[in-house]
Write a protein that binds this DNA or RNA. Structure first.
Length: 330
DNA sequence: ATATATAAATGAT
DNA sequence: CATCATTTATATA
């Protein structure tokens, strides 16, 4: 289609206003994706060259705590575009399960949307997108994984590389969470799974709505009767769009963190959280895909409804976005 | 089975 | 009422 202005177009201001972000023609495709994911628009990629946009504030004045807070990391002028791009292009899952409370079955909707990319260090993706063994460079046996690992799409891989440079660490996994509103949350936990190794570094990005991030030291193991320890007050950080926190050292083994539910002001706005981490062994891959993808359906952002809607995997109807040339892999 | 994890429910300010 | 801290219930390893 031609970009020449027509008389018709002249009287349609909506047409000229629309493309705020230049659409990228290329996409990341992979057999494990429900549909191809567009590459990052170069306006965003270019701006990311200036990241980190601020020097980090070190937060290490408490026992076993070692973290850096970049406010922001993503340059201000593209932070909103990046948020919208990712929310629009990614496929999400809302893991649900049922439990019995007393006698009544209740359905639990995991209070956030999730999606995940990556594979642990024992494997990597070849240029054609196939999984290879790190050790032998041979194809991994078909039954090695119960899940189907997904390579990072280009748009995340760009961010990954920049983050690796800042952190002085390498990452092979990317977890993406979407907190649709103040009712979405995650309760206190640590990212201290064994498959991450002893002192995992985790880079966590915030985009979209501001949310509180609470951290508290793990309770000391209860010893016999005597020492009732006074629990220290949780540390509260307000995470804004474009911020990044790098958690390292002994932080994960000794601290818990959470995103609590929030009412009021920002409660209607969505927040995307992106974490980069490194899984060392197979178990990490299985775990992450099990708990962040599960077996439920796909959700996508509906710009008209301004909410996540379940996405029908009807044949051949891929992205609402522009069809482009297909790159072989991320 | 003991321990850990997670979200809901409850109680307090 | 919103937030915070604690407890409860269940699941899973």
């Amino acid at each position: 289609m031609s970009n020449k202005r027509t008389l018709d177009g002249f009287f349609k201001p909506a047409e000229s206003k629309r493309p705020k972000i230049e659409a990228s023609q290329e996409v990341s495709s992979h057999a494990s994706y429900p549909y191809p994911i567009p590459h990052l628009p170069c306006s965003i990629t270019d701006a990311l060259g200036f990241a980190p946009a601020a020097e980090a504030k070190a937060i290490n004045d408490q026992p076993d705590l070692d973290l850096l807070h970049f406010q922001p990391y993503i340059p201000k002028d593209v932070q909103a575009d990046l948020f919208k791009f990712l929310r629009r292009e990614f496929f999400f899952y809302r893991v649900q399960y049922t439990i019995k409370r007393g006698s009544i079955q209740t359905q639990i909707n995991t209070p956030r949307y999730t999606t995940v990319f990556g594979v642990d260090e024992t494997s990597y993706f070849g240029v054609d997108g196939s999984l290879l063994e790190s050790k032998t460079k041979q194809p991994v046996p078909k039954d090695r994984y119960k899940c189907m690992p997904r390579p990072l799409p280009q748009c995340l891989d760009v961010l990954r590389k920049i983050t690796e440079g800042t952190a002085g660490e390498t990452f092979n996994f990317c977890l993406v969470n979407y907190y649709a509103n103040g009712n979405d949350s995650i309760s206190y936990h640590s990212d201290d799974e064994r498959f991450l190794g002893p002192n995992p570094a985790i880079a966590s990005f915030s985009l979209g709505a501001k949310r509180d991030f609470l951290m508290k030291h793990k309770p000391a193991p209860m010893s016999m009767s005597e020492p009732a320890k006074p629990e220290a007050k949780p540390l509260k950080l307000l995470l804004a769009s474009g911020d990044m926190i790098l958690m390292r050292g002994t932080t994960q083994t000794n601290w818990l963190h959470s995103i609590p539910k929030r009412k009021g002001a920002d409660s209607g706005a969505g927040r995307i959280n992106i974490t980069f981490r490194k899984a060392l062994v197979r178990g990490g891959t299985e775990n992450y895909y099990q708990y962040n993808v599960g077996s439920g359906g796909i959700f996508r952002w509906d710009n008209k409804k301004q909410e996540m809607v379940s996405w029908k995997a009807t044949e051949g109807s891929p992205t609402p976005g522009p069809p482009g040339t297909v790159s072989l892999t991320a």
